[in-house]
Every structure is written in structure tokens, then in C-alpha cells.
Design a protein around this nucleic acid. Sequence first.
DNA 1: TATTGTTATACTCTATAACTATA
DNA 2: TATAGTTATAGAGTATAACAATA
Lengths: 163, 163
Amino acid sequence: MTRGPHIALSLRLAYLALHRRTDQAMERFGITADQFVLMTALVRGDEALTQNELARRISSDPSTVRAMLVLLEKQGLIVREDHPIDARSRSVKLTAKGLRLHRQLWTASEPIRKRILSLFEPKEASLFLEFLHRFQAALTDRNTSDSSRHPLHDSGAKKWLHA
Amino acid sequence: MTRGPHIALSLRLAYLALHRRTDQAMERFGITADQFVLMTALVRGDEALTQNELARRISSDPSTVRAMLVLLEKQGLIVREDHPIDARSRSVKLTAKGLRLHRQLWTASEPIRKRILSLFEPKEASLFLEFLHRFQAALTDRNTSDSSRHPLHDSGAKKWLHA
DNA sequence: TATTGTTATACTCTATAACTATA
DNA sequence: TATAGTTATAGAGTATAACAATA
């Protein structure tokens, strides 16, 4: 049995700490950390996204995403309209209320992001990101992880590491 | 709104990928990734552990741990005995069956750990670990994170980083 | 008084499988 | 045939609060 601290376990602890912190920050708005991630994906995806596309972006499941969307829809934060081209699909987007709330959530979570950034020097931060991407790519089922998706971090770090 | 890829989101993706991979590896044994983590904590804690201690070790909640233990107990993988000293506490330990299963689970997850290790050179691995610990420590509520708990990685990496 | 653990309760996330409607 | 999404269903983890027993 392998001894010593493990990247896997440490990754887990780091993620759980982040998740709880985020949940706490969102709590007074009645939103969970995962819902925040979903809403953020919608904000970034300027145009509306289909549910499948959303699932891919947040690394989740269409059925899970649907459950989450139903909850957000009840709160009037998102709407699911008919897709202009594909009648099977639904266009998901934030409502004005959803967008407004997301801005509040973003502000509420600012301290967390600041805290994180303060922990690392710029070089360390980009190296950390590179490690995380490498890790994720290697453990993701479908090698859908089109390396073009992370153009900023697929290399570069290695350069100065061995300089 | 901050642009660019985020450590927080990347950490999330990396963790989710790991979690799913682990769940898949454990599936045929009827065990979840989280239950595996819990069992591993029991294996490492040689002596029996109390439920509170377990909760702390896997960064969870006493109530959550209890729910998990109940499930494992039903399968005969753990037992909760009276604590020898503190009658309020319960001593949790793996049964022989639990220990046997854990060995199988450990083997079943070996490819994942190997894969992870193969991704990083030794120096990178220890630096990655150090980043994760730093991250976790900064985001953990209680600064319970006794730095003596990670003696192997509280420093060292920085040394060669700036060499 | 403080702490360990239980109980009750509730909600979110997760995921599979069978189904429909459309492509 | 394949795909988008729904539905039904189930289970696992999470967490809070009230409580009993013990320290």
C-alpha cells in the first residue's frame, strides 16, 4: 500500500473546502455552490445554451442539469425557451432577475477568489492551473478534452520549470 | 468580472473527474468513492476511531459520517463497538470482511493512482501537493489545519522553485 | 456545562432506464 | 438511427436542530 500523502486525497480536501466556503457565501441567497457554477456557465455563454451543452460545460449529466434547472426555474432565475433551430432542444438563459442575482453572488464570492489568488505568485498560479488541467484531462472519460479548450495552459509552464 | 480560467473551476473539474473515475472503479463492489475514502481512513487509523474523529479526517460532518457508517454496517464491513474509555463514544473499525474488501478496492483503484503519478515528475508532484495543501488550509474554516499535519509538504517545494 | 452520538427531517446532486419527439 | 430532453425512480451525501447519555 502506497504511503505518504496522496494527490488524490489532497485534491479532495481542497475541493471540499472550496465547495463549503462557496456554499456558505451563497447561502443567504438561497443558492448552492453548484447552482452558482451553473449560473456562471450561463453568464459566460452569452447566448443561450442547450441543456446538453450546459451539462458538458459544468461537467455534469443532462438529467442532473435538468433537475437543477427546474429548481432555478421555480425561483424565476432562468427560462427555457424553444430552440430557434432545433425543436428538440431548449434554449436556457438567465432571466433579468437571474442575472441580477448572479452579480450579487459574484460579489459575495469575490473574497474567496481573492483569497485564492493571494496564495500564489503569478507563476505558481499558472503552474497550478496547468497541473489541474493535466490531471483533469487524464482522468476524464471521453478524451473530449480537446486540448484546444485550454490554450492558455497546455504548455508554457513547463518552459520556465526547466529553464 | 474576472476573466480567464479560474483555479476554483479547474479544481472542481479535476475533482469531479477523479470522483467519477473512482466511483466507476468501485462500482462492481457496491461501494462509492466516498465510502472508500472513509474505509481508507479506518485502515490508516490502525486503532479504532470515534465517529467525530472520522468526520474530521475525511473532512465531513458527524451526521454525514453516521449515515455512511450505517450503510457500511449493513454490509458487515464495519462495526461500532463501545469505546473503552469514553462511554459516549463509539469505536469504529473495519471487520475482517471490510479489511478484505478494502484491499480489493485498493487494488481496483491502483490504476488511477498510477495514472496520476505518471502525469507528474517527482518535483512537480510535490509542488502540486504543496499547492493543494496551501489551498485547502486557506479555505478551511477552522484553522484546525495544524500545519504539523502535513510536515512533508509545508515547505521544500519553494526551495527549488526559487533556486 | 460541554461533548458524543442519535434521530428526524429535508434538500440537493447524481444517475439509470424507459420514453417522446424531433433530426 | 441518432439525438434532446423528460419522466420516474432511487440512492447518496449533506446538514440542521432537538434530544439523550455521559463527561
